[in-house]
């Protein structure tokens, strides 16, 4: 075995016990015969192997577990929030659906209002489209006017007879 080959093995497989019995025997034989390679092996052990193999194992700082645990809790919280968001998304209705529903409701209300007859404010009759009611209303108004004519109790009347009936404004007096 040449020194180059021996030194390659000395810096790796030989030192690490990775050689089979025969290969190891050859390296040992070379070392017995070669002072240079023996010194090389000692130098490698002293400089690159022993200080590291004798180094004690480190102990993780006590605060490390607290940090890990906090990190896990934070991730779990985020996971819950993400799950809730997914549930919310699964029930989520897009704004276009809300808009369509609102438009439909507005149309329905408009149709209902337009179909409903207008009522006369303060009247006991149902509506102006109700012909019978309209006639009654007109008759009622005429009877009020007739009563005012006969009794002189019209708007602004002073109670001194038919000649002194005051119809209110000049325009009303002219028309009447």
């Amino acid at each position: 075995m040449k020194c180059t080959e021996a030194r390659e093995l000395l810096a790796s497989d030989f030192l690490d016990g990775e050689l089979d019995k025969d290969a190891r025997g050859e390296v040992v034989k070379h070392l017995d015969a070669c002072d240079g390679c023996r010194r090389f092996e000692e130098a490698v052990r002293r400089a690159a192997v022993d200080p590291l193999r004798n180094a004690p194992r480190e102990t993780a700082p006590p605060s490390l577990w607290l940090k890990v645990r906090l990190g896990i809790e934070h991730e779990q919280e985020r996971g819950v929030r993400a799950a809730l968001y997914r549930v919310w998304r699964s029930f989520h209705v897009p704004w276009t659906a809300y808009a369509a529903a609102s438009a439909t409701a507005a149309v329905i209300i408009a149709i209902a209002v337009l179909r409903e007859p207008l009522t006369v404010p303060g009247s006991t009759r149902a509506s102006l489209t109700d012909t019978e009611g309209l006639h009654e209303y007109i008759e009622e108004q005429f009877s009020i006017l007739a009563y005012q004519d006969t009794n002189g109790t019209g708007n602004g009347a002073n109670g001194n007879g038919a000649d002194s009936v005051n119809f209110g404004t000049l325009l009303e007096e002219y028309l009447m």
């Binding site: 810096a11 790796s12 690490d16 130098a43 400089a47 690159a48 192997v49």
Partner: peptide, 12 residues
């Protein structure tokens, strides 16, 4: 491993 050990030896 070999290169690492060679580096450590030359440093020493």
């Amino acid at each position: 491993l070999r290169r690492a050990r060679e580096t450590l030896c030359s440093r020493a």
